[in-house]
């Protein structure tokens, strides 16, 4: 029982990160009707930008020392008094890393926003009004371009980056079995949930969100009502790229930066289709379900089975409900 709870918690925590990634795909789809196959690679860029600004830049010879490791006198004094492995020690370690974490996150978000704008401007905007097939295939071409560009810029593999929160282990006792959680994981979940909620609220209540929904409903009507559709497009791409940057940074803290982060995008794409492309709620439920199922597969059959869970799940769901769990059925006119 205890093991079950441990794996369930791990799965649900992974699920919230999936949801954070999925929000990027859903937002772009809602606004532009384009499914971004390359979203995983945008996330990978976010992770590498985080790596650049939190590891490479602070480690450069011209960077000030406090950026690499901020250690004022009071912190040194406090550290000296602490016993080994105390929770306070972890918090202090995090504090001395804080400058580079903040720099890393800011750099990743800004660079990824620029990347999103660049993609939207050069590849998507010229194709407004063309068939969606062309736009989708362009994002498929983008996969190769992004993954090759990564290979040209960064050669680092499996490098570790600082956690975005103090990583204190938390031990609980449930049903007489110990359960381990890590502070950083909990903060990751909180960040993911907050961002997800904020985006859903934004789409529902703010003026920009209404513009996105109107564009999703009917592009030409939205245009004639005075909504600048190109601006909605670029806003959606920036939104996807920035949430992708944060998701990438979180993923990088969990497993290190590596090109395989790009493949993550495909399993999230499967999750998005499972939940229904235009439904935030459906995608959230699908993300948690897949996270849970992955953890169960890992527990019962071993790690390599977890990888195919999203693909098997999406095939089953698509066969039963072609538009996903909560997706809107498209009406087709001949």
């Amino acid at each position: 029982m205890g093991e079950f709870i441990q794996f369930t918690l791990n799965g649900l925590m992974a699920g919230t990160i999936y949801a954070l990634i999925a929000v990027g795909i859903v937002s772009v789809f809602k606004a532009t009707k384009v499914v971004n196959f390359a979203h995983g690679y945008i996330i990978m860029f976010g992770a590498y930008f985080y790596f650049t600004f939190s590891v490479i830049v602070p480690g450069a010879p011209w960077a000030p020392d406090w950026l690499q490791s901020w250690e004022p006198a009071w912190m040194v004094a406090m550290k000296a008094d602490l016993p080994m492995f105390s929770p306070m020690g972890a918090v202090l370690d995090w504090l001395s890393n804080l400058p580079r974490i903040v720099l890393g996150l800011a750099g990743a978000v800004i660079c990824n926003a620029l990347l999103g704008l660049l993609i939207e401007r050069t590849l998507m905007r010229p194709l407004i009004g063309q068939s969606t097939f062309a736009m989708i295939m362009i994002t498929v071409g983008l996969i190769s371009v992004l993954s090759g560009t990564k290979g040209l810029i960064w050669t680092a593999d499996a490098e570790f980056v600082p956690h975005i929160a103090p990583n204190t282990p938390i031990r609980l006792n449930l049903f007489d079995t110990p359960i381990f959680l890590f502070g950083a994981d909990l903060v990751n979940v909180a960040v993911a949930l907050l961002l997800f909620g904020a985006i859903v609220a934004m789409v529902r209540y703010t003026k920009g969100g209404v513009a996105i929904r109107a564009t999703a409903e009917d592009q030409s009507t939205a245009y004639s009502m005075g909504i600048s559709v190109p601006r909605v497009f670029s806003r959606a791409w920036v939104l996807a790229a920035t949430t992708g940057a944060i998701a990438g940074a979180i993923l990088a803290t969990r497993n290190g930066v590596s090109p395989s982060l790009g493949l993550f995008g495909f399993s999230v794409l499967a999750i998005v289709l499972m939940g229904g492309l235009d439904s935030y709620v459906g995608v959230f439920i699908a993300a948690l379900t897949v996270g849970f199922l992955e953890a169960m597969a890992q527990w019962q059959f071993g790690g390599e089975f977890a990888e195919v869970v999203p693909y098997v799940a999406v095939l089953i769901v698509i066969l039963i409900r072609p538009h996903g769990l909560f997706g809107q059925k498209e009406v087709e006119r001949i």
Binding site: M137, G141, L142, I143, S144, G148, K150
Partner: peptide, 16 residues
Amino acid sequence: PVQEIIFGLLIIFFLM
């Protein structure tokens, strides 16, 4: 990597 980029650019270029 250059080869990958060229493959991607070929797809994008021809589609556009």
